[in-house]
Each structure stands twice: as structure tokens, then as C-alpha cells.
Design a protein around this nucleic acid. Structure first.
Lengths: 192, 192
DNA sequence: GTCTATAGGATGATAGAC
DNA sequence: GTCTATCATCCTATAGAC
């Protein structure tokens, strides 16, 4: 239990450095120095640098997969599902903001087996989102624009949220959800 | 003139690799191998790895600064200015997509003097965009949501466009502009 | 759990031959 | 303009003492 706590501490430090400089620009010495120990000591708690990356990324990826699967099963309108997806992203941003940086920027540095699993989860996630949008279009709840443009537009906003959320002082989460849903669903131009 | 062409060739190869793996995961040996020469030979054309990064990033950053300054001077409505900014991003995405990856992901690896200049340009750019939004709100052209949410939402979509533009087969640029403006300005929900 | 010492290899860059 | 050879430094990771 003591080692588990120490391991977690390493992961927290590593995630902060990965976020600031990227996986490849952070050395084991950097992480160790930040903790006040020597690099060799890290290996008593973790198997290597790769473990840090995959732990960080896969934990967050599973949150997304789990959350999306929950939303898909709901028996509500497409608009309501999209609202819930937006809220899911904001919740994950608030709770896993450090891991999100690794997931967004360093996923390609995962080792082969982890990479494969990650890409699969990501594709499934996008496909579920795509289906929700298409169902909304069929039901007349959503504009019949090219669904890919909408999917991409919403997803890139939500995926980058972690960068911006920390730069501003931590905002009220419920207010942020409300504003974000409004802007992403209805745009910035008032109705005529 | 011959050397200039060779130099350009190196930059093209480097930008592709940087985009795929990130600046720190690409070695001079990787770049050289891709060109069929040895790493040492690269130094006849460029001063070092840093020059490749700063050349790529600053070229694109200047395009943004130049384009934004042009839009700001126009005597048109705020909505029209935002439309022009969206089109500016799409034009740059189409013409400088490789450099955009470096700008988005590896700007923090610029050396001190270049980094300073880049951050300044980026802040000025955002501030100009912010002013356009605020003017639009005052004029009643734009919803009075928190301007930061709108700014962030639009900018993160536009900044990530390069990832998505290449994944799909190259789309018709004018159609993309039209769809993008529609989604970003009016959202995805049809007017009641 | 942390240390020192070190293996074994990659990295950016230079010197000098051709 | 490209090569070989090489330097000095950094990297991840291991072995073994305390």
C-alpha cells in the first residue's frame, strides 16, 4: 500500500511534466529530480517510462469509453445525448486534466499493443458520436449539414478544453457546461 | 539557388516527420535517411535541428498575424470579420498543413528568442479575435455569452482542422468554408 | 526505498577527406 | 555536397550496496 501511494506520486509528477513538455522531452532524471530522488529509484515503483504513459492514457481513454457507452444506452433525444456527451467531456477535463494532455499529444508514443487498443477505443468513440448525430439529423433535431463537419467541430473543441480550462482560473463547472452546450448547439449568432 | 532548393527539401521532409511523431521523436538521422543521405550532410544546408523547427513555425505564425491584421482593418460587420477569420484558417490549413502541426504541438520546443516572439504573436492574435467578438456582442450581432467560451470554442476547432483535413480526402475548399462558417456561427440545431 | 556505478545505445553536431 | 569517423552528452534501464 505504501508502494502504491509512491507509484501514484510518480504518475502525478510525470503527468504534469508530460503536459508541459511532451513525453519525449521529459527524461526519467527530470521526473526523479522533481521528486527529490535519483532516476534509478523510480524503477523500484514502476517498470519503465512506457508504463507511465500507458497508465495515464488508458485510464482516461476508459473513462471516455465507459461514459459514451452509458450515453448511447439512454432513451432520450439526440440533442439530449449530445448534451450529455459535452458534459462527459467537461467532467473528465476537470477530473483528469493532466492525463488528457498525454492522451491528446503523446498517444502515438504508446508501445504497439497499447497503441492498438487505444486507437480502437478512439475510433469506437467517434463512431458512436457520429451515429448520435446522424440519428438527430434523421429525426429533424439537428441541421442536415455534413455530419463530419459537426462531429469534428464539436470534438475538437471538447478535446482541447483541458488546455484552456487550467489557463483561466478554475471556473464553475455547471456554468461552463451550460455555456458550452449553448455555444456548441446553437452557435454564437442570436436567432432572428 | 541550388542549396536553397535542397534546404527546402529538407524542411519538407522534416515537417512531415515532425507531424507524424513530434519534434523530439525525430532525429537528424531519421530526416537524413528519409532523404537518402547521411545526417552529417544535412549540416551543409542548415545550421541545426532548431532552425528547422523555427523556420516551420514562424512562417505559419506570420501568415496568421498578417491575415488577422488585414481582417481587423476591414470596415465590415463583426460577423463578416469572423467569417473572414474562419476562411483565413482554412486557407492556411490547406497551404501550410505540415507547418501547422509543428506550430500546434511543438512550439514549446522553440529556443528562447523564437519562443518569445511566437508567444507574443499568438497572444496578439487571440486578443484581436477577442476584440472582434466583443464588438459583435455590443452591436447585438453576437449572443452575449461569455466571450471566452466562444473564442475558445471557435479557435480550438480552427486550430485542429489540419488534423482532420488530411484524414478525409481533400475536400472542396469553398464547400468546407461554407459548412464551417455555418456550424461555427449557427451551431447544429435548426432555428425554431 | 534509495543510493552509486555503469552498461549499452541514441543523439546533435563537428572535422576533415573526397 | 556527401561521406566516414568521432566527440561529448544524454538516455533508459540494471546490478548490487546500504
Amino acid at each position: 500500500m505504501e508502494t502504491l501511494s509512491r507509484k501514484q506520486e510518480i504518475i502525478v509528477v510525470a503527468s504534469r511534466l508530460f503536459k508541459e513538455r511532451g513525453y519525449n522531452a521529459v527524461s526519467m532524471r527530470d521526473i526523479a529530480q522533481e521528486m527529490g530522488i535519483k532516476a534509478a529509484s523510480l524503477y523500484n515503483h514502476i517498470s519503465g517510462k512506457q508504463e507511465l504513459l500507458s497508465t495515464l492514457i488508458l485510464e482516461v481513454a476508459r473513462e471516455f469509453t465507459f461514459g459514451m457507452n452509458r450515453v448511447v444506452k439512454e432513451e432520450v433525444s439526440s440533442i439530449e445525448k449530445i448534451t450529455q456527451v459535452i458534459e462527459l467531456h467537461i467532467d473528465i477535463t476537470v477530473n483528469f486534466s493532466e492525463g488528457l494532455a498525454a492522451l491528446n499529444n503523446d498517444w502515438m508514443h504508446l508501445e504497439a499493443t497499447d497503441l492498438e487498443g487505444f486507437v480502437k477505443m478512439r475510433e469506437d468513440y467517434e463512431e458512436n458520436f457520429r451515429i448520435i448525430l446522424k440519428q438527430g439529423i434523421e429525426a429533424g433535431e439537428i441541421q442536415s449539414h455534413h455530419p463530419e463537419v459537426m462531429l469534428f467541430s464539436i470534438l475538437s473543441t471538447l478535446r482541447t478544453l483541458y488546455v484552456w480550462y487550467q489557463k483561466r482560473g478554475k471556473l464553475d463547472v455547471n456554468l461552463l457546461k451550460k455555456d458550452m452546450v449553448a455555444v456548441l448547439l446553437h452557435g454564437i449568432v442570436p436567432p432572428k
